[in-house]
Each structure stands twice: as structure tokens, then as C-alpha cells.
Design a protein around this nucleic acid. Structure first.
Lengths: 203, 203
DNA sequence: CGTCTATTTGAATGTACTCAAAAGCGGTGG
DNA sequence: CCACCGCTTTTGAGTACATTCAAATAGACG
């Protein structure tokens, strides 16, 4: 059985492998400001109406971010598993009440940093400004791609693309959560899946 | 009649009013690297298959960014008017072929910077890393909001929200372009507009 | 096992699309 | 000043994609 990295080591490793790697000192400053937190399945990192006080990096487990519409239906905006971030940027930066929920779909561990501490890192350590710029750019690109599909593709196409683009999410999420992410009902996703078996892609 | 700002002055003004203002030296470095370009109505800043070589800041006029699906239909992802940016980040940063077009809807003037020159600015002048981080964060927030509407709101609600959120776009864009942005057909938008007059919002 | 949630099924319905065509609107040239 | 062109907007009939609601079935967990 694999030994898990210590949470803070996982975060340093994350920057090392995909961004401008941190110096020893930067890693120490990071460690000083991030706090570990474990949450149970169905616990919330954030609820509608609260201000999002922390940026959260997922070390273990799985989260969804969703909004609830006037008729009470949930709409998933984002999932996050190990080595992904989940933060309501709108609430976090403007320090305004969130319009979304962030909820654990599995028992989870996150590393969290307060707004002021993050701004502090940005101010004193150039590299964080840069790494977070890149991080958000990547998020923006993914989001734009998803928006394009949402306005141009059928439900079946969106499901196909989801399976190929996010297999690591698809494997561990219930279909009802995926349906909500795709903007369709669970019933309709079920029909799509049935049809895929009956009349396969190209055969 | 108002005197227009010189293009580069408009860009400095843009950072001054909404971001961390630039020093004289930073403004000079900016001026050194941005190039002015005027384009006619219907001219392209970017076409599918090309690599997006420039980040573009709109000084005058109006653009749309759109993707074309397999059946040849256009889907608008973004508009940009004065003091807004229009750049295919996915193509620009990865230096890969774009999947979108950027086309002038009116005669326009833009300021453009090359990929390498922008990275250079980031490297030598901390503030650009920061200002562009914030810039992209704001774009991300707007995009997430739009995605939420796309998966949760009806066409009529999306149109209403568009009118209230982006009046400066709504005023100068033809309905066919707005329909494409909302992910509906022009015909259906026309029906929505008719119904709005017949049975007004709350009366 | 019993409970809770996820998934599937079916019938009726609704929202938005397609296609075709007409009407409106602004510019341009004769 | 009028006629014509290109483009946008509107209208209508028929259709397709996806939803709603209700209920049956299947899985997972303690």
C-alpha cells in the first residue's frame, strides 16, 4: 500500500510538477499559512449566503460546487478531486455572500488559506502571483470550453465529451451528479446511456 | 465633441482606473511592446486553425469571438468593446491552433502584444503578473456566472439577464449576434421579444 | 435484512429548433 | 427621389430534444 504524502508536501509537489517550482523559503511561507481540514461526506466547505473565507486545495476526497435555482434544483458548476482547487472566486475576492455551495461527496482533506494570507503571499512572493495567474488562466480555458459545449452541443455529445475529457471525475461520480453538471436531468442521462449500449458510436 | 485618448493612453488609463496603476517606467515598457492596429468591419483578428499570436485590447469598435460547429453554425463566446480584451487564451498560451474566430463587428482599433513580449513584461515587471491575474480572475467569474445561467435558466431568463448585465453590449449588437451568444436561434429570440411586449414582466 | 439513494422506465408535456417565407430597414446608385 | 440590394427581424407550421411526474428496480451500506 502506497504511503500518502503529507498534505503540505502534496501542495508543494503540485506546484513543482505543473507550475514554477517553489524555493525552500516559499514552501515554508506556504506551510505557515495553509491549514489542514478534514470534512465528512456531505459536509459543506461553503454555503450560499456565507462569505467564502478560504481558498481550498483538495488533498484527498472529492467535492462539488453547485448553485440552487428558485425551484430548488441543484446545478453543478465544478467538481474537484485530489490536486484540484475549489473556491468561489466571486465571493472570495469581493468578500461578498456566495451564491453557491461547496459540499464533500466523499470524506475529504483540504488545505485552506485565508484571503488576507493569500494576498500577503502575492505581495511578498512574486511567484505566487504568477502561479495563480497561470492556474486561473487554465481554469478560464476549461470553463470557456465547457460553455461552448453547453451552447452548441446536444446532451449526448456533452456526455461523450465529459467521459473523454474528465475520466477521473466520471469514474468516481454518481450519474445524478454528472447529469447536473451537464445541465440535464438524471432520467434523460439514463436514456442516453441506454442508447449508447444499444446503438454504439460508429459500429 | 470629446477628444479621443491616444490608444496607448487609453490602455494606461484602463490599468489606472481598475487595477494596480502603472509607474511611468511600466507605462513606457507597455508602450514599447504594444502595437496599434486598425481593422475594417468583418475583418478577422484570428481565424480557426491559426495560432493566436497577440493579446488584444480594444480601443475602439467591437468584436465577437465565436466557434463554428460541424453543421456550420456559429456560436458566440464573447463580445468585446472599448476597454475590453479579446484573446483566445487557449491558443495564445499553448501556441496551438485556435478553434475560434475573432471578427470585427464594427470598424475597430486594437492594441496588440506578442506572446513573448507579454511574458517578458511578466518576468521583469511584477505588476503585470498581478494585474493580469486579477484580469483573468474577473473573466473567470463572469464566465462561471454565464455557465450557470446556461445550464439552469430558460432562454427568456438568459435574455433578461443579458439585457441587465451587459446593457453596453445589448445596445450596439444586432439580435442575431445576441441570440448566438445566448445559445438560441434568432427566430426564437424574436418570439421572446414579442412576448415581452405583449405580456410584460410583472404587470 | 431494511433503509437510503441511485438508476431505469414510460407517458404526457414543454421548450426550443428547423425550414420556408414574408416584411422591415438602411444604404447606394441611377 | 426611387429602386434595388443585402441583411436583420418576424411569422408560422411541423418537429425534435429534453423535461416532468410517477413508479418500479437495483445497489450499497450498516
Amino acid at each position: 500500500m502506497e504511503k500518502n504524502l503529507a498534505p503540505l508536501e502534496a501542495l508543494s509537489q503540485y506546484f513543482r510538477s505543473d507550475y514554477f517550482p517553489l524555493t525552500k523559503q516559499e514552501e515554508e511561507e506556504l506551510a505557515r499559512r495553509f491549514m489542514e481540514r478534514t470534512v465528512k461526506r456531505r459536509a459543506f466547505l461553503l454555503q450560499e449566503g456565507e462569505v467564502c473565507r478560504y481558498a481550498s486545495f483538495v488533498v484527498a476526497g472529492c467535492f462539488k460546487m453547485y448553485a440552487v435555482d428558485k425551484s430548488g434544483k441543484e446545478h453543478n458548476l465544478l467538481f474537484a478531486v485530489e490536486n484540484e482547487w475549489i473556491t468561489d472566486l466571486a465571493s472570495f475576492y469581493a468578500e461578498q455572500p456566495a451564491r453557491v455551495y461547496v459540499e464533500a461527496l466523499e470524506p475529504a482533506t483540504v488545505l485552506q488559506i485565508k484571503h488576507d494570507d493569500l494576498l500577503d503571499l502575492f505581495t511578498h512572493y512574486h511567484k505566487f502571483d504568477r502561479n495563480f495567474r497561470i492556474l486561473v488562466e487554465r481554469g478560464y480555458i476549461a470553463l470557456q470550453d465547457r460553455l461552448l459545449q453547453s451552447i452548441s452541443a446536444t446532451a449526448e455529445e456533452r456526455y461523450q465529451n465529459f467521459l473523454t475529457q474528465y475520466p477521473h471525475w466520471a469514474r468516481r461520480l454518481p450519474n445524478t451528479q454528472i447529469a447536473s453538471y451537464l445541465g440535464i436531468t438524471p432520467e434523460f442521462l439514463s436514456k442516453i446511456r441506454k442508447d449508447r449500449v444499444t446503438k454504439p458510436g460508429k459500429a
